[in-house]
Design a protein around this nucleic acid. Structure first.
Lengths: 130, 130
DNA sequence: CCAAAATTAAACATTAATGTTTAATATTAT
DNA sequence: ATAATATTAAACATTAATGTTTAATTTTGG
């Protein structure tokens, strides 16, 4: 697979940085949700937002750079579509922590035992103030 | 209980923003991985990093604000521990897109089924027997 | 009491992220 | 050829994010 436009290029860490950063914005998440329905062009994607077209255009660019959006230029129209592969990466990162909230204590206990650690449960620990 | 620093407070969107933003940094992801092993105090957490202690302290604060780290102050020592609940939120967001990379319809079915609880929809029940 | 230890607060310097508005660039349609 | 479309590029203004270094603050061990 060649390195074309978005997503690739950096280390695994840099790629995760890009993906999580792309997801850390409501507008961009909304764009992804929209693209999950079906592909659309920039103007169309921008319509629902109370924001200038260039601004949305750049949000899409961020998504594209993270590899989350693929772009197919046809004349003056740029058709964007969802490219979920990088989400798989995010999911793969996340899966490691799933055991901490799934209540699957067996896996956690097994792990803690193997570490011989002073592990405690990670539910809601004490409050804190500052 | 006042709404102090961590996690809650904002809208679902704001919370997701905070979580994804917190994850969009290698240092912070490394901190979480470390805390997944066992709780630790700030100084201890900072040691492995080639960065000043205050800098790490602030990374931890970002994680705390996202609700990903719980802090238990004991004297001058702040013991931090992983609080994975917000990751569940991120995971819940992500799961919607899982079908886009899993290529099979089982994932979609799993998703639709898991809609049960609050907003259950019966549409795709028993579509394609398996 | 006093110095060491554990942390955060302050004060700064830099760079990244976001939005806006106003061009500039291609493409198409008339 | 022109004008209308679809998009990005530029130029700016602002605010957020990160790091550093140098104080404060609060505890704790002697």
């Amino acid at each position: 697979m060649q390195s074309s436009a978005g997503a690739r290029g950096g280390s695994a860490d840099a790629r995760l940085d890009a993906v999580f950063h792309a997801l850390a914005d409501r507008t961009r998440r909304t764009l992804l949700a929209r693209l999950a329905v079906r592909p659309a062009m920039i103007t169309e994607l921008a319509k629902p937002f109370d924001m200038s077209l260039p601004a949305v255009s750049r949000h899409i660019r961020v998504l594209e750079d993270a590899g989350l959006v693929a772009r197919n230029v046809d004349g003056r129209v740029h058709e964007c579509s969802l490219a979920a592969a990088p989400l798989k990466r995010a999911d793969a990162w996340l899966v490691y922590y799933r055991r901490f909230w799934q209540g699957n204590l067996e896996a956690l206990e097994r792990y803690v035992d193997s570490e011989g650690g002073a592990g405690r449960r990670t539910a809601a620990r004490g409050r804190h103030g500052r």
